[in-house]
Amino acid sequence: MNHFYIPALGGTLIGLAAILLMATLGRIAGISGIAGRLVEGCARGDRAWRVAFILGLILAPLLVQAIGGNSGIGTPDSSSLQLALAGLCVGIGTRISGGCTSGHGVCGVARLSVRSIVATLVFMACGIATVFAIRHLGWGG
């Protein structure tokens, strides 16, 4: 068993990031929304903060590494086909439902949005079902 205070501390940092973004820019810290709008095209003045946020995300593991820690980055144990299919599903699904683990799962649940609570239950259930199908029913394995 791992020590669970470190993951809880990680969660707290995610919460602080969400609070900071709401306090300054008045935005929900939803990654699919922040990055997705960049891909689909948004107003010029709306771009820089999104790029900066994503840059911060990418810099985080490098910063941990630079101060002597483990970057914490793991490599997915999946085929190219699985990676491409999964990426497409995650992109389309989060765009259509308007959020992902952060936007719905953290920020939405935190403000008790019924939509976000429903979305979170659905994507958790479907994630669990998918892992069950692959690991215990031998689908796609």
Binding site: S32, P61, A86, G93, I96, G98, T101, V118, G127, T130
Partner: peptide, 27 residues
């Protein structure tokens, strides 16, 4: 909302990446 969340969940369970961790892992 429900269909999108379901498709997202399937993709999440397939590889174990949701958008935030995937972007951070680009590092």
């Amino acid at each position: 909302l429900i269909g999108g969340a379901a498709v997202f969940g399937i993709g999440w369970g397939l590889v174990g990446y949701c958008p935030g961790p995937a972007l951070a892992s680009l590092a």
